[in-house]
Computed example of a mutant assay.
Amino acid sequence: MELAISPLCKRVTDLGSSYRLLRAFRPLLFQNDVVIGDSPSIGDVIPYSTALHFLFSRAPPDVRPPYQVMEWSISRYSRWLDEHQSQRERLNMLRGALENYVNSVRAKQGTEFADIYPQMVKLLQKGMEKHSVTQ
């Protein structure tokens, strides 16, 4: 992506926070879930909600992302994200999706959660603490 952007800008660093986010995210793409959850970039350069969306994309199908839980199209969810820029609102939406997953496991009388779930909860809790999301 950097190579595609560089002809359009004299200095890609002039893109500011968007560029910093891209650079910080790149090393996480092929890391395991624990490394991602422990990354110091998350919460600093990478918003918690962005990291959680990434983990949702890596999760098994029964850990459904918010747009599927809400039965929205991806474009509708994208509009919602555009209209709700605050981490508080986004984390509340993500929390609802994780709660939905827990309820579905319990409804099936399951006793185990997906391996990625603890990392997702850890990031959600860190984000909620930082952004004072009400419980």
Rank of each mutant, 00 (worst) to 15 (best):
S18W: 11
Y48Q: 01
G43D: 07
S73K: 14
V45M: 05
L22I: 08
S39G: 02
P40E: 10
A24E: 00
G43S: 05
P27K: 01
M70K: 15
R20I: 01
G37I: 01
L91R: 02
S41T: 09
D82S: 15
S57Q: 14
S78F: 10
R90D: 03
G43K: 10
A59E: 02
L52S: 00
R79C: 12
L55N: 06
Q87I: 02
Y48S: 06
P66E: 02
V45C: 06
P47S: 08
R76H: 15
M70S: 12
L94H: 09
R64H: 04
S39T: 02
L91C: 12
R58W: 05
V63G: 08
R23L: 09
D44E: 13
R20Y: 01
R88V: 05
W80M: 01
F25V: 07
Y77H: 15
S49H: 05
D44A: 11
F30C: 04
N32P: 10
R26E: 10
I36C: 01
I74D: 05
A24H: 04
E89F: 00
F54R: 03
H84P: 07
Q87K: 06
H84E: 05
S86R: 05
A59I: 08
Q31L: 15
R64A: 15
R20Q: 12
V34A: 14
